[in-house]
């Protein structure tokens, strides 16, 4: 109990601590300054102010403003047209890019994960050892030759089952 009283007396001594001389003299002035600053900052980012700035720029220097706006629109239109021009040939000639490479190959290179299981089914267990897997020619003996069809249509990327 006595200990608690001693502690209370000691803590009560902190009441004697005073603010720095003059530090509370201009609290009201500082408050108004800060209030004005916060209001100013808030107003600067309001939609009404941004719209007003846009209109000011348009009305104050219409020629300069229109020149910049036209240049910006031209750049944007150029980019849209450029991208469109590149995209059309790709869409029309998609099959022609794939046909020669696939048609001349005599190996069926299939990267589908499902074939890994098929390969394991036909390969002896020892053929799948770590040493065998390290061999760069591993798997070549299991590759099936592609029998070309006499009048086969060109094979597209999708039909060749090549996954990128």
């Amino acid at each position: 109990m006595e200990n608690d009283e001693t502690l209370q007396r000691l803590l009560a001594l902190k009441r004697c601590e005073k603010p720095l001389p003059g530090s509370l003299d201009n609290v009201v002035g500082d408050f108004h300054r800060r209030l004005r600053y916060e209001q100013f900052r808030r107003e600067q980012h309001s939609p009404a102010v941004l719209w007003s700035r846009f209109m000011d720029a348009l009305l104050a220097e219409p020629i300069s403003f229109l020149r910049h706006a036209t240049a910006g629109a031209a750049v944007a239109a150029g980019m849209v047209l450029g991208l469109g021009t590149l995209a059309i040939p790709l869409a029309n000639h998609q099959g022609q890019f794939a046909a020669p490479a696939v048609a001349q190959s005599n190996l069926r290179i299939d990267l589908e994960p499902s074939d890994d299981a098929a390969l394991r089914a036909i390969a002896p267990a020892d053929a799948l050892s770590i040493e065998a897997l390290a061999d760069p020619d591993f798997g070549r003996q299991f590759a099936q030759p592609l029998v070309p069809q006499p009048q086969a249509a060109p094979v597209s990327f999708d039909e060749a089952n090549i996954i990128f």
């Binding site: 007396r9 001594l13 004697c16 601590e17 005073k18 720095l20």
Partner: peptide, 13 residues
């Protein structure tokens, strides 16, 4: 060093 204390409190301290 920003504490201003009543000199009479010093004995209490």
């Amino acid at each position: 060093d920003q504490m201003e204390m009543d000199p009479n409190e010093l004995d209490s301290i």
